Computed example of a mutant assay.
Amino acid sequence: MPILMIALLFGVMYFMMIRPQQKRRREAEQMQAALAPGDEVVTIGGLYGTVASVDDDTVLLEVAPGVQTRYARPAIARVVSQADRVEAVEATEPLTEDAAAVKE
């Protein structure tokens, strides 16, 4: 009976703590890998900036006109907007018949 309780406790801890943390870490890694110039981001320190260039381990952010700072990729907390890539995808999508009629 005590072994069953320990196994049950480990199972609950896995599904309540370990698994969600692994999911958040995986999502953060995917977000950091998808960074591209033009993305507006926020660093873990709260600094807003626009990605100027991306290297293997670092990201160059433009925080003001002519002011660029270099950060490690893991220092990027979230992407605020990806406007350039979204517009590019919308521009390359083929138009449906209804959308083509509206465009004319």
Rank of each mutant, 00 (worst) to 15 (best):
P2D: 14
L4H: 08
I6S: 13
A7M: 05
A7L: 14
L8M: 05
L9G: 11
G11M: 03
V12I: 11
V12L: 10
M13T: 13
M13L: 11
M13S: 10
M13H: 13
Y14F: 12
Y14D: 11
Y14G: 06
F15D: 07
F15L: 02
M16Q: 13
M17V: 11
M17Y: 11
R19P: 06
P20I: 03
Q21M: 07
Q21E: 14
R24L: 09
R24Q: 15
E27L: 10
E27D: 13
A28K: 13
A28L: 10
A28R: 11
E29L: 10
E29A: 09
Q30H: 11
Q30F: 07
M31W: 05
Q32V: 07
A33D: 15
A33R: 07
A33H: 09
A34V: 01
A34F: 05
A34Y: 01
L35V: 04
P37I: 02
G38C: 02
G38N: 10
G38E: 02
E40N: 11
V41C: 01
V42T: 14
I44W: 04
G46F: 00
G49V: 02
G49T: 09
T50Q: 07
S53V: 00
V54M: 01
D55I: 00
T58E: 08
V59C: 02
V59T: 10
V59S: 09
L60E: 13
V63A: 04
V67P: 00
V67Q: 11
Q68K: 14
T69Y: 08
R70P: 05
R70L: 10
R70W: 05
Y71Q: 11
A72Y: 13
R73K: 15
A75V: 00
A75K: 08
I76L: 05
A77K: 12
R78P: 06
R78V: 02
V79A: 04
V80L: 04
S81V: 06
A83G: 07
D84S: 12
E87R: 14
A88T: 08
A88C: 02
V89F: 07
V89A: 08
E90L: 10
A91E: 15
T92W: 01
T92V: 03
E93I: 08
P94Q: 07
L95Q: 09
E97R: 14
E97N: 12
E97M: 05
D98T: 12
D98M: 04
D98P: 03
A99N: 07
A99W: 01
A99T: 07
A100D: 11
V102E: 15
V102D: 14
K103L: 11
K103C: 02
